[in-house]
Amino acid sequence: QTQEFDNEEEARKAEKELRKENRRVTVTQENGRWRVTWD
């Protein structure tokens, strides 16, 4: 699953929550947008 964010702060917040659920999370930056991908 993927979700896009406008800034790193929001993306990192989402990453932190997903990691609490023991998910594999990848955060990438593309064209000024932050993308959080998880399984």
Rank of each mutant, 00 (worst) to 15 (best):
E21M: 14
E10Y: 04
K20S: 10
R12P: 00
K16F: 12
N7H: 06
T28N: 05
E15D: 02
K13R: 12
E17L: 12
N7T: 15
E30A: 10
R19K: 12
K13Y: 12
R35P: 01
E21N: 12
G32Q: 04
E21Y: 09
A14W: 15
F5E: 01
W34T: 01
R24M: 13
R12S: 03
V36W: 01
K20V: 08
E17T: 09
R19W: 11
V25G: 03
V27L: 07
V36Y: 00
R12V: 04
L18V: 03
R12L: 08
D6T: 07
R23W: 14
N31I: 02
E4D: 09
A14G: 02
E21L: 14
D6M: 06
R35I: 15
N7E: 05
R24E: 12
D39S: 08
Q1Y: 15
G32A: 04
N22Y: 14
E10D: 15
Q29H: 14
E15K: 02
E17F: 07
Q3T: 08
R24Q: 10
V36F: 01
E8F: 04
G32Y: 02
D6V: 07
R12H: 05
W34A: 00
D39A: 05
T28M: 06
D6R: 05
V36L: 06
F5L: 01
Q1V: 13
Q3C: 11
F5D: 00
E8W: 05
Q3L: 15
T26M: 09
N31V: 02
D39K: 04
V27S: 02
K20F: 07
E8R: 02
K20E: 12
E4Q: 04
E10A: 10
Q1S: 11
E10L: 09
N31W: 03
Q29R: 09
R35H: 11
R19Y: 06
E4R: 04
A11L: 02
T28L: 07
R24L: 13
R35G: 02
D6C: 09
D6P: 06
E10S: 09
E8K: 03
W34R: 00
N31P: 02
L18Y: 06
G32D: 08
T26W: 08
K20N: 10
E9M: 09
A11M: 02
N31A: 06
T2W: 15
T26R: 09
E10P: 02
R35N: 08
K16D: 10
N7R: 05
E30L: 10
E17N: 09
T26Q: 07
E21S: 12
G32S: 03
R33M: 11
V36I: 10
G32T: 03
A11R: 00
T26F: 09
N7Q: 05
